[in-house]
């Protein structure tokens, strides 16, 4: 593990990715100690101040400190999307390995279902589910986890199919091993790298998706500090007070770029072909 980190950090892009990701995680974890103000405290005296010495990134329409809100703003998004990414990777990964190994008709039919899900306009579908189930982590996490898991399934199944054609898997089948030992001992250990990279890529995409939901008013609810929500609330003042939109945007994109670079570097360090770990 340490060796892997060292390999990643030895390249500039890997070091940048690792640095950005760790920086944002630290920011989210240590927010109460970093943020100078209460992110939800409104103050009528400090409405729409430009960035200055006490408000590094200025203030918003309700007089709240943008810097403090940006620091807190990742907490919900990161927690929700990370959990969803774990769920997506686990179920999509398992199903992908299963169908890739079993093949034949079962796989054929399952893939048609997967195709159907992949062809849906997922954002609209997400909005539908949330409007039925209500906006909250308990609806958003399983929904994101399910939809992104379908994409993980597709990628992992492709890799699993290639692997299942290798002689050591044939040897295990010829030996008469049951399905579970083949999946867990022959297949999974050779696909865990792809799962790791794939999971990280999905996480970065989910961050964007969650922020879009918040922007549309279906994710985080006011007054929770959240990047997507902040952009939604301040977007009317883009020309007069751009800092309210600029800073959350910059933070969000730097985290997404960081995770992408990190996933890329992990893939390279593990010797994966980039083609097997692309986002759909």
């Amino acid at each position: 593990m340490l060796k892997l980190l060292a390999t990643i950090a030895s390249k500039p892009s890997g070091a940048l990715g690792l640095g950005l990701t760790l920086f944002h995680l630290a920011l989210a974890l240590l927010a109460p100690w970093i943020a100078p103000f209460d992110p939800t405290a409104q103050n009528a005296d400090t409405i729409l101040l430009a960035p200055n010495a006490s408000h590094l990134m200025g203030t918003d329409t309700l007089g709240r400190d943008v810097f403090s809100r940006v620091v807190y703003g990742g907490r919900l998004a990161i927690a929700v999307t990370f959990t969803a990414a774990v769920i997506a990777t686990l179920w999509g990964g398992f199903a992908g390995i299963f169908f890739g190994t079993v093949g034949g008709r079962v796989d054929e039919y399952a893939m048609r279902v997967v195709d159907a899900f992949l062809s849906m306009p997922w954002l609209l579908f997400l909005l539908l589910i949330i409007s039925i189930g209500g906006a909250g982590p308990l609806t958003i996490i399983p929904t994101l986890g399910f939809f992104y898991g379908v994409a993980v399934l597709r990628v992992v199944r492709g890799a699993a199919m290639q692997l299942a054609a290798r002689d050591f898997v044939t040897a295990a089948k010829a030996r008469g091993e049951a399905l579970w030992p083949i999946l867990s001992r022959e297949m999974f250990p050779n696909l865990s790298d792809i799962l790791l990279v794939e999971g990280a890529m999905r996480w970065s995409w989910m961050l964007l998706a969650f922020s879009s939901l918040s922007f549309l008013g279906f994710g985080a609810t006011p007054p929770t500090p959240d990047w997507g929500l902040m952009v939604a609330q301040e977007r009317g003042l883009l020309s007069t007070a751009p800092w309210g939109v600029f800073w959350p945007c910059l933070t969000l994109s730097s985290l997404i770029i960081g995770i992408n670079l990190l996933a890329d570097a992990v893939g390279k360090a593990l010797g994966l072909d980039r083609a097997t770990a692309v986002a759909v």
């Binding site: 290798r166 002689d167 050591f168 044939t170 040897a171 030996r175 008469g176 022959e186 250990p189």
Partner: peptide
């Protein structure tokens, strides 16, 4: 199954690298 066993052409591919 035990009574019939197979040895493969490419030892590299027939052993699980992990």
């Amino acid at each position: 199954l035990r009574r019939v066993q197979m040895i493969f052409q490419n030892a590299d591919a027939s052993l699980n690298p992990r």
